[in-house]
Structure formats: structure tokens, C-alpha cells
Nucleic acid binder design. Structure first.
Length: 455
RNA sequence: UCCCCGAUAGCUCAAUGGUAGAGCGAGCGGCUGUUAACCGCUAGGUUGUAGGUUCGAGUCCUACUCGGGGAGCCA
């Protein structure tokens, strides 16, 4: 008989004379003459309760069924006479597929700390909270594709291995096929030149925006920074749309629309899982999400942001001066205290931004934008790209970049250049936003951080 | 990488420099259409690692490892 997923059993409209389910035992309660076994198969947050009468055979099986064991159940789906659930399974047979030794199985019928569960990342998806976040992770990824598909964007698979060692977005992991400690020259390495893991698909995506119009990449991204914070990992996923014939305002419009779309989608499609987080992880979660949906994002020029920060009575550890980058304390003040909603800060000084960002008419600022979100910090970073060849070349000269390395990038400005813009959104940070989870390591199946590569 | 805090039973945590405990979990028994089940009993420890001080160190000192928070870097 075919397996019915528990999610579907619990959503049944009418009883089922025959049903077969498989899953992992969350808890078992023995009674005189029968037992209750609660099963979860990961298809949804809820367990299904199985009531099974004792026969000599079943008593023997049940004796070895504990929390964590996997079982296959046959029976009938009936309305539950008890409180707490609409449906339950009246079991006729239970088969123990994989036992779990109660003396050593680390997941107990109680709440565990996130720190402890990180140490058993291979088992934590069997808990309510982590099952929920990984279902949500899947749902959010699907929503991203849906959003862009509905807007006629094309999904581009940009390379993971890159040859440009100067993208400027942070330290890169080197890729080599040479043996560890090899003294061989780089010419003898696989690619014959230095190669690394990508820190951004942007430069590649630009080529496709200037061909297919509106495109996006969505894939793994790597930073070898020795960052030890709840918001950074060495390997993460980034969404990077790139739009042609568009300026910075279009870019900000797109980002705002996307964030609101994704939140709406998650509220509609992951309601039960989100509710868990709203109840046990972040009591203000629903209010936060509704606040984001119901208000236009603030759009604040950098120069204006500096003026606001200088004017406020609040004392900052770092002094505020035009020309400096905003510190975390400044960003938090702007989005959490001053505006209490997402804030775009845009038109940053050219001196603190990379070469590809478009020079503004003042010749001092570039068309860059960061989207700051309460609790998360920087969720989106983007810019209008410099499409004017002469300006781009002079910027590269100023910053001392090797133009030979970028010959193909420059070709896009040499032939049929057009205004375009784009941004990057940290996928995991978005997941943190919609779940209320405060440590990025807890929204990733097997997070990679400095000195941590178990699993 | 810098600053602060922490590491004791399977988990969460107690323990004036003087015999290492509790709750939960687990095992056993009992009770009950139960549902964070309930009641009773039992087992469970080289106190993160390596040194040092001391008659005596879970406790004080040093180094290291790992974890957490903050900062920097950023998504």
C-alpha cells in the first residue's frame, strides 16, 4: 500500500478505511491494553497520533519503539475522540524499521538549546523547530523563483569557480587541484591561473542582463573572511537580480517589491511553521512582518543620513562624519529607532564603494544602495552599474585595477552598453527575517564557519 | 582578527579552597483515551585539555581548545 504523508492525512476531509504511514516516533505513551504513538514524517510540523491495541506481537514490537525510532504503520484514519487533534490513526500493525537506543539517542522529549543542537546538526532537522525552518527554507527558495518567473526574469547559472581574483568583495577561497603543499607553479594547476570560489555572480550576471534584459542568479557564494558573528558564514546563498535599462530607483523598487512578495508568500504558504516561530522564538514576529508589508520603505540619501545621525542626541561609539561608512550602531539607529521600518540608504561616497558603481553628477557619490532592516541589518546591497566606458576606465585607474583582467567585462561597455542596475540579497538573512531566528547558523542545514567543518 | 563571558551527569544548571547535587531525560515498576501525561524506585561524573599554586583545586593562576555575545568585514 502506498504511503500517505502525514500532512495529507491531517488535512483529510473524511475518514479512510485504509492508510499506511511512515515516520519517526516523537513520543509513546503505553496504556493498559493499548498504546499511543505520535509519529512525525517531516511533511509538516504536526504529528499524527496512532492508537494501537495490544496483541502479543504488537507488545513485543512496541517495547522497542522509543523516541527517534522509525516505524511503518498500517491502520485506518478515524476522527479522534480525544481532545487536541481532529484525526488519528487506529493502527492495526506497527513495524519497527529502525530502532533508536534511548540510552544514547541525543534528542529527548524536551526542549534543547540551539547551541547543543548545532553540535548534532545531522539530527536537528528531526526537531519541531529545525524541521520547520528547513521546510521554510525550501519554500522561500521556491518563492524567489516564482517571483522572478512572474516578472519574466531569466535564471542564470553563473560559475562557482572564478578566475578573477580581484572582485573586491572580500577574501576568497582558493581552488586548486595541486596536492597540499605543492611547490608547482600556478601554470601547472588545473586552470593554469589562480582560481577561487565566487564571492558574487554579479559581473557575470551583468553580461546576461545586457543580453536577456532582466536576469537573476541564485546560488552558493563564498567568503573566506574570518567573521565570527551570528550573521556571517563562509558559504551562503545569494540572490542577485540584474536589470537592464534601469536606474537606482528601479533597483530599489525591485528590492522592496521582492521583499514584500516573499514575506506575503511565506505567510500564505508556511503558515503553520511560521506560527511556531511567532509563538516560541520571536513573539513580535508577526508585527514585524506586517509592519514591513504595510509601509513603504524609507529612502534616505547617505548625505541626509549623516545629517540625521549628527543631529540626534543619541551618543555613538563611532563619530559620524561625511565620508565614513555607516557602522552597525548607525544602521540600527536608522531602521530600528528613527524610522522603525526598512530603510534604503543610497548615494554613498565613491571612496567607500567599488569601481563598478555608477558615478553621480556630483562626482563625489555613486549610485549605491543598502537596504537596512530592523534586527537583520543589511539585507540587500546594490547599485546602478557604471555603463559609461570612459568613466569606468578612469575609476579602475584610480583604484589601481588591472584592466586586462576585465577585458570581457569592459567589452559590455564597449559594445552596446546600456544603463543597468542590480543587487544582492542574502538568502539566509531573509530566512532570519521571516522566522525570527537570530543566528544564521540555525537557518542552514550544515553551516560553514571559521574552524567549523563537521558534517 | 579584537573585546567580554562561559565549559560540572545524556540535556539545562547548582556547589565559602575541604565527601560533586537538583530538575529534566533514560531504565524498571505502577496508574490512566493519553497528548510537555502522571506517581514511585534505580543507575549515571577522570568537573573541556595541559601545566602551575596549595596539606588539599570544580573553585585560584597560566596557556590552549571549543562554544556564546559584542565589534570589524559584509549578504
Amino acid at each position: 500500500m502506498k504511503r500517505t504523508k502525514i500532512k495529507h492525512a491531517l488535512n483529510a476531509q473524511e475518514p479512510m478505511a485504509e492508510i499506511h504511514v511512515g515516520g519517526w516516533v516523537r513520543t509513546k505513551r503505553d496504556n493498559k491494553g493499548f498504546s499511543f504513538v505520535e509519529i512525525n514524517d517531516g511533511s509538516c510540523l504536526s504529528n499524527i497520533q496512532v492508537v494501537i491495541d495490544h496483541t502479543p506481537e504488537i507488545v513485543e514490537t512496541i517495547a522497542n519503539v522509543g523516541t527517534g525510532a522509525s516505524v511503518a504503520i498500517d491502520g485506518e484514519l478515524v476522527e479522534s475522540p480525544g481532545k487536541g487533534q481532529k484525526w488519528e490513526i487506529r493502527g492495526t500493525s506497527i513495524k519497527l524499521l529502525g530502532g533508536a537506543d534511548q540510552e544514547t539517542f541525543p534528542l529527548q522529549k524536551k526542549r534543547h538549546s540551539d547551541e547543543f543542537l548545532r553540535g548534532i546538526a545531522h539530527l536537528r532537522p528531526r526537531t519541531n523547530k529545525y524541521g520547520a525552518i528547513f521546510r521554510m527554507r525550501s519554500e522561500l527558495a521556491q518563492a524567489i523563483h516564482k517571483f522572478f518567473a512572474e516578472k519574466d526574469f531569466f535564471y542564470i547559472h553563473t560559475p562557482i569557480i572564478t578566475g578573477s581574483d580581484c572582485e573586491g568583495a572580500g577574501e576568497m577561497f582558493r581552488v586548486t587541484s595541486l596536492e597540499h603543499g605543492s611547490q608547482k607553479p600556478v601554470e601547472e594547476d588545473f586552470f593554469g591561473k589562480p582560481s577561487s570560489l565566487t564571492v558574487s555572480g554579479q559581473l557575470s550576471a551583468e553580461m546576461f542582463a545586457l543580453s536577456l534584459g532582466d536576469v537573476y542568479t541564485f546560488g552558493p557564494t563564498f567568503r573566506a573572511e574570518n567573521s565570527n558573528t551570528p550573521r556571517h558564514v563562509a558559504e551562503f546563498w545569494m540572490v542577485e537580480p540584474e536589470i537592464a535599462f534601469a536606474d537606482l530607483a528601479d533597483d530599489m523598487d525591485l528590492g522592496e517589491e521582492m521583499i514584500k512578495y516573499l514575506i506575503t508568500h511565506m505567510l500564505d504558504h508556511s503558515a503553520e511553521d511560521i506560527e511556531l516561530f511567532a509563538k516560541f522564538v520571536d513573539k513580535s514576529l508577526m508585527g514585524t512582518l506586517e509592519n514591513i508589508l504595510n509601509n513603504p520603505f524609507e529612502r534616505l540619501p547617505y548625505t541626509e543620513a549623516i545629517r540625521l545621525l549628527k543631529k540626534t542626541k543619541k551618543k555613538f561609539e563611532y563619530p559620524v562624519e561625511w565620508g565614513m561608512d555607516l557602522q552597525t550602531e548607525h544602521e540600527r539607529f536608522l531602521c530600528e529607532e528613527k524610522f522603525k521600518k526598512p530603510v534604503y540608504v543610497y548615494d554613498y561616497p565613491k571612496t567607500i564603494k567599488p569601481f563598478y558603481m555608477r558615478m553621480n553628477d556630483d562626482n563625489e557619490t555613486v549610485a549605491a544602495m543598502d537596504c537596512l532592516v530592523p534586527r537583520i541589518g543589511e539585507l540587500i546591497g546594490g547599485s546602478q552599474r557604471e555603463e559609461r566606458m570612459d568613466v569606468l576606465l578612469s575609476r579602475m585607474d584610480t583604484l589601481g585595477l588591472d584592466k586586462e583582467e576585465y577585458w570581457w567585462y569592459l567589452d559590455s561597455r564597449r559594445y552596446g552598453s546600456a544603463p543597468h542596475a542590480g543587487f544582492g540579497m542574502g538568502f539566509e538573512r531573509m530566512l532570519m527575517l521571516v522566522s525570527g531566528i537570530t543566528n544564521i547558523r540555525d537557518v542552514m542545514p550544515f553551516p560553514r564557519t571559521p574552524k567549523s567543518l563537521e558534517f
